[in-house]
Simulated assay, not measured.
Amino acid sequence: DTGSSCPSARLTSCTPSISKNKGGVSVENAPSENKQWFVLRVSYGRIIKAKAFVEAKGFECYVPMRYKEVKKHDKKRIITEPLLPSFLFVHVTAEQVETLIHDNKVVTNDSRALLSYYFDHTIHRQDNPYCNPPLTIQNEAMNNFISLTSIKNPHIIPITSDNIQFKLGDNVVVTEGKFKGIHGRVARIAGQQRVIVELFDGCLVATAYIPNGIIMIEKETE
């Protein structure tokens, strides 16, 4: 995802010239700023350093955290850890993300880049049909994802398609409780009905148990 070809899409990911605006902007930012939510890959074990680096530049970024319940000496407590330690979400312009990727301070002595593009293998660039553009997330989808992952609940977990016992079902919205307003699709995880938010291919996060009485099927818009 940082430069290799994608077998499923048969497209090569290239360092791009970004011009296509697939994403939206954060509700906290003016549309004229032309910012997008970019998904950047972070080298192993360095998500906190990457977040500090981006924020030191004055840019907005988001690291979803997992509130994990642990037991020690017969006592339970909640600890926090990155939910998706390989990804950093940054809300910047195309020019600003280029600066983050190519800044000399990103490269360390071991030659590992702190940040690199995560490419969208579902489409190709208009100016080069053999290359994928960087992955960006639409504003509405990002807001939904932030709303879910900001809830301090240890039962919110990242999942893969292997965890899902049944095929993803109806598009729904949660109408009550801590998860009110979360949009996603119904599935059964670990024997419980949950709502699954899929931010991009392979990035799925599950709510805690959601009973039938507080979910409403969303009508498809024409």
Rank of each mutant, 00 (worst) to 15 (best):
D120Y: 02
T99F: 03
I156Y: 00
S86K: 06
T136G: 03
R112F: 12
F179T: 12
E95C: 01
N144G: 13
R77A: 06
G169R: 05
S147E: 11
V92I: 01
N171E: 13
K68N: 12
S116Y: 04
L100R: 03
L88H: 01
E81S: 00
C131K: 10
Q138E: 12
R125E: 12
L114I: 05
H91P: 00
E176Y: 11
Y130E: 11
L135H: 04
Y67P: 08
Y62I: 03
M65T: 10
V173K: 01
R66I: 07
S150I: 14
P158Q: 08
N144E: 03
K152C: 10
K75L: 07
D74L: 06
I101K: 00
Y117S: 05
K152V: 14
D103V: 04
N163T: 14
H155E: 14
K76G: 01
N132T: 09
T160Y: 15
V172G: 01
Q165T: 15
F166V: 11
L115P: 04
A94M: 02
E69L: 04
S116V: 06
G169D: 03
P129Q: 15
H124S: 11
L100H: 03
V173L: 00
N109S: 08
L115W: 02
D74Q: 10
L168A: 06
V174M: 10
Y117L: 04
M65Q: 14
K76R: 07
Y130C: 10
I151Q: 02
E81L: 00
F89G: 09
A141G: 09
N153Y: 07
D162I: 15
V174I: 15
L83M: 12
I157P: 14
F59T: 03
K57L: 01
S86L: 09
H102E: 08
R125N: 10
D120V: 01
I156T: 02
H73V: 07
A113M: 07
A141H: 11
S86C: 11
L114R: 04
H73C: 12
E69I: 05
K105F: 08
V174K: 12
L115E: 05
H73I: 08
S161E: 14
